[in-house]
Design a protein around this nucleic acid. Structure first.
Length: 253
DNA sequence: ATGGTAGTGGGACTA
């Protein structure tokens, strides 16, 4: 089973790129973030034509998440965090695996309201997992975490230290989620490579490879033995008019 | 500390 996460930064603006990608790259499950569209206006049809079941939790102009799956969903939950009014979570079960897709807040500068909201969001998600998932559950947490975990996950740790996405407070918060026994799939196969998933549109960041690894696929220990590969696909980031993120993919048996 | 770009929706906001 191939599972991917991709912050598409508007599903409608990226429809052509997304469909072409799925035609060329067979994925079983794909988690999308930043749809920027309400459920009613989500482009369901072209995905259905490619054989996908579609579960959407959308919002106008901002946020919005979806899960596409070739296999049928046996359960769909939206807004799994109680105060999630921003449409940032959707969970679906596919073939006995619970898949939780999360678009974490970007946050703000230290001390600002959005900064505290972001830290609270990490804590709420940690609590949700603690309360709702058992150690033996087959579970995948994936999405745009909006934080780089370690120095290896940013292009210039000295320059970026203390900026949004690489503050000590958010790194500590995300570590609380990793410490629930979840496995950072990319690092199982690429232990010490500098690999990024996001590059700012500005300042030719992608050309200079000035990026950050802020998108993750984490798997529960019950899935550890089934993990066969994980990688970042840079190809779609090279296209004109593409998202500022590129997909992360994990392969399970 | 600022600016650089992009999407939405037709200005300001988020990222």
């Amino acid at each position: 089973m191939k599972i991917a996460t991709w912050n598409v930064n508007s599903v409608r603006a990226r429809l052509e790129i997304l469909l072409n990608y799925l035609k060329a790259n067979p994925l079983d499950v794909i988690a999308l973030q930043e749809l920027k569209v309400v459920d009613e206006q989500f482009p369901y049809e072209p995905f259905k034509e490619l054989g996908y079941n579609v579960a959407v939790n959308g919002q106008k102009a901002y946020n919005g998440v979806a899960i596409l799956s070739k296999l049928p969903f046996t359960e769909i939950k939206r807004d799994v965090i109680e105060s999630d009014r921003e449409k940032r979570t959707i969970q679906a079960e596919v073939s006995g695996i619970k898949i939780l897709n999360v678009y974490f807040p970007h946050g703000g500068l230290k001390g600002e309201e959005r900064f505290f909201f972001k830290l609270e969001f990490y804590k709420m998600l940690e609590n949700y997992i603690k309360r709702n998932l058992l150690e033996e559950d087959k579970f995948v947490l994936l999405g745009d975490f909006n934080v780089a975990r370690a120095e290896i996950d940013v292009w210039d740790p000295e320059l970026l230290r203390g900026t949004i996405g690489f503050m000590d407070e958010e790194r500590k918060a995300i570590e609380g989620i990793f410490e629930l026994g979840l496995i950072d799939s990319l690092r199982v196969f690429h232990e010490s490579e500098k690999i990024f998933t996001w590059w700012d549109y500005r300042a030719s960041s992608f050309r200079k490879n000035e990026g950050m690894r802020i998108d993750y696929i984490l798997v529960s220990s019950a899935l550890k033995e089934t993990l066969k590969n994980a990688f970042v696909d840079l190809t779609p980031r090279k296209l004109q008019g593409t998202s500022d993120h590129t997909p992360v993919i994990a392969e399970l048996t």
